[in-house]
């Protein structure tokens, strides 16, 4: 009888000390005591983030062979390689919470894990490479700039590294858009069509509205998140609308208008039915992305086996030499 009460008292004292550290702006490191719930939320959030980087290679990889010039092709390859690197930074951070990257990858491959809904949309034209860099990476930067101040040290450090690299992604995307915007009528039409398709899914990247986001309150309390989904979405819209205007694009929202009193660009209602459908696996490309990821993993099996065989052989010859 006495034992559980003591344990409970210990736990609440630990939680209080933990929350006091968070309130004081301290960062939490892997071996520090943390509530199990904090650990679980971080594993969920960080692994979804890492998976998004990895799956995010697929829609863009689709256009590497058809890039219109060598310059564009080099940039796109470098960008896709960066996404792989970003996935690795975040998996590495997630592993500090006592999970195994191998386990996380299995969850991705067998469809248990979630990743950003944006990557379940197809990339139908070259203009999508510009618009994805500009809007999708732009939205990611807004999100990740704030995450760089998250309370969990390894996650924050991974974000700092990622943010530095994402700026190249956004600029190469916007350069493609600006070039097409200055091009032939057909090129301008291709660009506008891509913007019309990608604008709303890009706004959905920030997740459900605050009134409908079950995890937000807890994540904000523990400073895993520092701003709400809606705050970040608004910040993104405010940054992006002037960039669209600058290159003569129309955003597909009749309700979009500048509010003098708040300084915000007010935007129309997001189609949340579509968002939740894509999250549930019913987006245009969910199955295709998962199949492509599984295929790539299976195709890479011989590389993993060869590397292991090489290491074993090296080890044998070094023990023989000794």
């Amino acid at each position: 009888m006495e034992q559980p009460i003591t344990a409970q008292a210990d736990e609440s004292a630990l939680v209080a000390a933990f929350e006091a550290r968070i309130a004081a702006g301290e960062s939490i490191e892997p071996k520090d005591w943390m509530p199990e719930r904090y650990r679980k939320q971080l594993v969920r959030m960080m692994s979804q983030h890492a998976h998004s980087e990895v799956v995010g290679m697929l829609p863009e990889g689709n256009w590497i062979t058809r890039a219109p010039s060598l310059r564009r092709k080099m940039s796109l390859i470098a960008k896709v390689q960066d996404e792989a690197g970003h996935g690795l930074y975040i998996y590495c951070g997630t592993e500090t919470l006592g999970v195994d990257r191998h386990e996380l990858l299995e969850q991705l491959l067998d469809g248990r894990a979630k990743y950003s809904s944006i990557f379940n949309y197809p990339t139908l034209s070259w203009a999508d490479m510009g618009v994805i860099g500009w809007l999708v990476d732009g939205a990611a930067i807004v999100n990740q700039t704030i995450l760089a101040k998250t309370s969990y040290g390894p996650y924050a450090r991974a974000m700092v590294r990622i943010c530095k690299e994402e700026n190249f992604h956004k600029r190469q995307g916007y350069e493609i858009c600006a070039t097409l915007a200055n091009g032939t009528p057909a090129q301008r039409a291709m660009l506008q069509e891509a913007v019309d398709r990608i604008w709303w899914p890009a706004l959905m990247m920030f997740g459900p509205s605050d009134t409908d986001s079950p995890n937000s309150a807890e994540l904000l309390k523990w400073r895993v998140k520092r701003k709400t989904n809606d705050e970040l979405r608004q910040r993104f819209v405010n940054l992006t609308v002037p960039q669209a205007i600058a290159i003569g694009l129309t955003l597909p929202d009749p309700d979009l208008r500048f509010d003098e009193s708040t300084g915000n660009w007010e935007f129309g209602e997001i189609d949340w039915t579509e968002f939740f459908q894509v999250i549930k696996g019913e987006g245009p490309c969910n199955r295709e992305r998962l199949a492509a990821r599984n295929q790539a993993h299976a195709d890479g099996a011989w590389v993993r086996e060869a590397a292991a065989a090489h290491a074993a052989k090296q080890q044998r010859s070094s023990t023989q030499a000794a």
Partner: peptide, 18 residues
């Protein structure tokens, strides 16, 4: 190794069977 091993560790440090 599985996710049931929740021992927190320093950045990167794996259990012995890793």
């Amino acid at each position: 190794m599985s996710t049931t091993d929740t021992t927190p560790r320093y950045e990167g440090q794996l259990p012995a069977d890793g």
